[in-house]
């Protein structure tokens, strides 16, 4: 494990990628604290403003604290921001959209939604996939056979179509969900995405567990009288972790692309909330013969591409560091 860590640190591309992701994570975590214009306040009389260099238009007073429903912590952070910066806000460094909303602010706030989707969905796929694969691999025999056949069956389902069905269902019951269970539609949406990406994870974990359970340390644990769950969770799963980690770095980009895809179809995140997918959709729609608002499509695409690239680089480096002979993981 230590060797792997050193190998990872020696990889310059991986270092850059990790730093980039860390900076992004911090920015999106502390978005309410940053002196950005409101991502939701409309200025309908404005034309979309082209990007201005920071030294040309550094900032202005006149911040309006207008957001969608924020959590308690976030509203405290916004209050803190007002104490620190007053009503000062940054200029339109990345331009504004057709409704006069600052693009930089929307990208930073949108990253929160996109990361939330990515994290929750990956977590769901992690939990389902790892437990399914581990149980199948450890049980072996008929149970294994049945469980993996089920995975095969799911693989041949056109799952996107089922997700669209399911989102239609969730949309129908959104009011009840919020009132009776306190779950908003988006959370269901994230979990749904995750619930459909666990299949490969299950296969990968099962393969690992199959090869691990024949090793001596498992034998030793059994001789010492460890129970089956204990062997599974305390001895096998920690050893599967590296592979799972590598596969996670592939799941996160896939989920983010799905979010963009569903937002495009109008089934994903709904305004006034923003996500990167939604921003890219708005930008793609803004390219018409009448208006050449290139910044609306360039910056969100760049944000998506850079993040996904960083995740891929990190995943590749992680794989190389952990096991140079690990085969290319298929999606």
């Amino acid at each position: 494990m230590n060797d792997a860590w050193n190998a990872l640190r020696a990889n310059r591309a991986a270092r850059v990628a990790a730093l980039f992701l860390l900076a992004l994570a911090l920015a999106s975590l502390f978005a309410p604290l940053l002196p950005l214009p409101s991502p939701a306040a409309l200025a309908l009389r404005d034309r979309p403003l082209a990007p201005a260099w920071p030294w040309e238009h550094f900032g202005a007073h006149g911040f309006t604290p207008e957001y969608w429903k924020l959590s308690w912590i976030d509203s405290q952070l916004v209050a803190l921001r007002e104490r620190i910066f007053g009503d000062w806000q940054t200029g339109p460094w990345l331009g504004t959209d057709a409704k006069g909303r600052d693009l930089l602010a929307r990208i930073v706030w949108g990253s929160r939604t996109s990361f939330e989707v990515a994290l929750l969905a990956s977590l769901t796929s992690l939990v389902i996939g790892v437990s399914w694969g581990a149980v199948a691999g450890y049980a072996g025999g008929r149970v294994d056979n049945a469980m993996m056949r089920f995975v095969d069956l799911c693989f041949s389902l056109p799952f996107v179509f089922l997700v669209i069905f399911l989102i239609g269902v969730v949309n129908e019951y959104r009011a009840e969900l919020e009132r009776d269970f306190g779950i908003d539609r988006e959370t269901v949406f994230y979990v749904l995405l995750g619930a459909f990406t666990w299949l490969t994870m299950a296969r990968v974990v099962r393969g690992q567990v199959l090869s691990l359970k024949k090793r001596e340390f498992v034998e030793a644990a059994r001789v010492l009288g460890a129970s089956r769950p204990r062997i599974l969770f305390a001895h096998l799963l920690p050893n599967v972790l590296p592979v799972v980690l590598v596969y996670l770095t592939l799941t996160v980009p896939a989920v983010m692309l799905y979010e963009a895809f569903l937002s495009f179809l109008g089934l994903g995140i709904e305004p006034p909330k923003v996500s990167w997918g939604l921003l890219a959709v708005e930008g793609a729609e803004a390219l018409t013969p009448l208006s050449f608002d290139w910044w609306l499509v360039l910056w969100p695409s760049l944000a998506i591409a850079a993040t996904l690239l960083a995740l891929n680089v990190l995943g590749d480096a992680l794989r190389d560091a952990l096991d140079p002979r690990l085969p290319e993981l298929r999606r």
């Binding site: 980009p253 692309l257 963009a260 895809f261 495009f264 997918g277 890219a280 959709v281 930008g283 793609a284 729609e285 390219l287 018409t288 013969p289 499509v297 695409s301 998506i304 591409a305 996904l308 690239l309 891929n312």
Partner: peptide, 22 residues
């Protein structure tokens, strides 16, 4: 290839449209 994998296809589509149709 990294860009092709990382960009949503509607972004690629609108860029193509912009260049080759407009």
């Amino acid at each position: 290839t990294s860009l092709g994998i990382a960009l949503p296809n509607f972004v690629i589509a609108s860029a193509l449209l912009f260049v080759f149709a407009l």
